[in-house]
């Protein structure tokens, strides 16, 4: 029985889960997705079995058969980066990255083991909950979303700010990874829109929470409102969270097949809950030390074989 952690060995979450799994005596391998498709011996009989030999021809060769893998944790992002050599043109590298992506997406989808945060075609969007697809679900579970604007120019951003009430939260569309991008959070005209479109949210006063789920286990706590530039870097520590919030959070994370994620929520003065933000690739440094201590064992437990 083996657990695979797909990610970089320096990733703090990978390091933390690795320590937990080691302490519990589980067999596991940390596999860099780039190595899995560009530096290994992979044989995949599609729809049946697969075998992966890492570090072939080197001292520490590791062989993994798909039949012994009980769980896999996807902790990486596309596009992949094939190692650059003088032999490959940029077109070659781009092609290889796509082929590697196609291989891993299919391999994980075809695996029968538990997969935590399985990658999906096209990737996961930060504001998926605002899609029309989820409208019925949000209504049924009384989950609100704020007034939001997706803008590719200063004109769009400023028009939105002029038309809505409340304070504005500004987020680069592409990434939930914290970037100290705004010298002046309200300096919309300073933003380099060629780098990323912006998402703006009109926020009413209320109480804010930062939530984390590991399977059906939920941890979270109140945080300071993130007006201006918003990120997940809140230092949240585990505290009491209202049960309606936990239910709503799990409803959305289950619907989106996210076993491990973090999210920002708000309850306004009318006791309406709003989902504001979602990160499908949670980061350890976003949380306080006690939260880190709680989440990593939960993650290891989720991946561990169930007897």
């Amino acid at each position: 029985m083996m657990i695979i952690l797909f990610g970089h060995s320096n990733d703090p979450i990978i390091r933390g889960v690795r320590s937990e799994l080691e302490a519990q005596g589980h067999v596991f391998a940390v596999v860099d997705p780039n190595d899995a498709v560009f530096e290994s011996q992979l044989t995949w009989d599609v729809g049946s079995s697969w075998n992966l030999q890492l570090n072939p021809g080197k001292g520490k060769a590791v062989e993994i058969s798909g039949s012994v893998v009980t769980a896999a944790f996807w902790r990486s992002q596309f596009p992949l980066s094939p190692s650059t050599t003088e032999f490959w043109s940029s077109q070659d590298l781009s092609y290889m990255a796509k082929e590697g992506y196609a291989t891993l997406l299919g391999l994980l989808h075809g695996s029968t083991c538990v997969i935590v945060n399985e990658p999906i075609p096209g990737g996961r969007s930060r504001f998926f909950f605002a899609d029309y697809t989820w409208e019925r679900l949000l209504e049924d579970h009384s989950i609100g979303i704020p007034e939001m604007c997706l803008a590719t120019s200063t004109t769009g951003s400023t028009q939105f700010c002029q038309e809505v009430l409340g304070k504005i939260r500004i987020l680069p569309l592409g990434s939930a990874v914290s970037q100290k991008a705004f010298a002046n959070p309200m300096g919309l005209s300073d933003w380099n829109y060629s780098k990323s479109p912006l998402c703006l949210q009109a926020i009413a006063p209320g109480e804010w929470f930062h939530m984390i789920n590991v399977g059906s286990e939920v941890r979270g706590g109140p945080i300071a409102p993130q007006i201006g530039y918003g990120s997940f870097e809140t230092g949240v520590e585990p505290q009491f969270c209202p049960s309606p919030l936990i239910t709503k959070y799990l409803t959305l994370s289950n619907a989106y097949d996210l076993e491990f994620s973090e999210s920002i929520w708000m309850q306004d003065e009318y006791e309406q809950w709003f989902c504001l933000d979602w990160n499908c690739v949670p980061q350890l440094h976003h949380w306080g030390p006690a939260m880190q201590q709680e989440v990593l064992p939960l993650l290891a437990h989720l991946l561990a074989p169930k007897v």
Binding site: T43, V46, G47, K98, Y101, G106, G122
Partner: peptide
């Protein structure tokens, strides 16, 4: 169809036969 094997697995689930397929670096 960004991943043909991914899509083929879905196609199989939806009732069509797929050809015997090997993906390999060996």
């Amino acid at each position: 169809n960004g991943s043909k094997p991914y899509q083929q697995l879905r196609i199989t689930q939806l009732g069509f036969r797929m050809p015997k397929t090997l993906v390999t670096t060996v």
